[in-house]
Amino acid sequence: MPLINFAAREINYKIVYYGCGLCGKTTNIQYIHRTINPEARGKLVSIATEEERTLYFDFLPLTLGTVKGMQTRFHLYTVPGQSYYNASRKLVLQGVDGVIFVADSQITRLDENVESYLNLWDNLLAQGDDLAKLGFVIQMNKRDLTDVFSVEDLNELLNHTNSPVVEASAITGKGVFDTLKSVCKQVISKTG
């Protein structure tokens, strides 16, 4: 549900990075903040614990520029991944236009991935979102590690919606912008 301010000629979309603890959500957003043209981004705000684990969310506004006379922005958020922070995750999901589900490809993280994926759909359904109008991308992160699931296996486990999939290594930046680009295009298309 984007905020469209016709009077101020502005349109704002909200995109949320979702996934289990330590899957790389904050790493994605930090890489974007470091790499993108500084004029196209605002301040990175992080509400984290002393151990730098996300406590509430990270926030980074990106400006696309003026499109057909409308100043167009994407507001990127992450959620806290640890399972006991579900109340906070629900709050961050409010008003979301697009979701990037960051899956940790490591074999040892299978249970956490599945739990987080199910939790995402539970929360979206609970807030009554029209899921057909939501942009959705699955990022298979940590592909640079060795002990990982195949893309086919992860796809079968975590992609019941047949959504676009991007292989990534957020720590090196591989796939980070491909993921973001995919969801940005979807939200514009689906909310139009």
Partner: peptide
């Protein structure tokens, strides 16, 4: 409210390509 311009999606797609090019 007024409707969005019909060319918005296509132009926004080009702007997204431009913003993320070479990254």
């Amino acid at each position: 409210g007024p409707a969005m311009d019909s060319g918005f999606e296509a132009d926004a797609g080009l702007a997204i390509d431009d913003l993320f090019k070479d990254l």
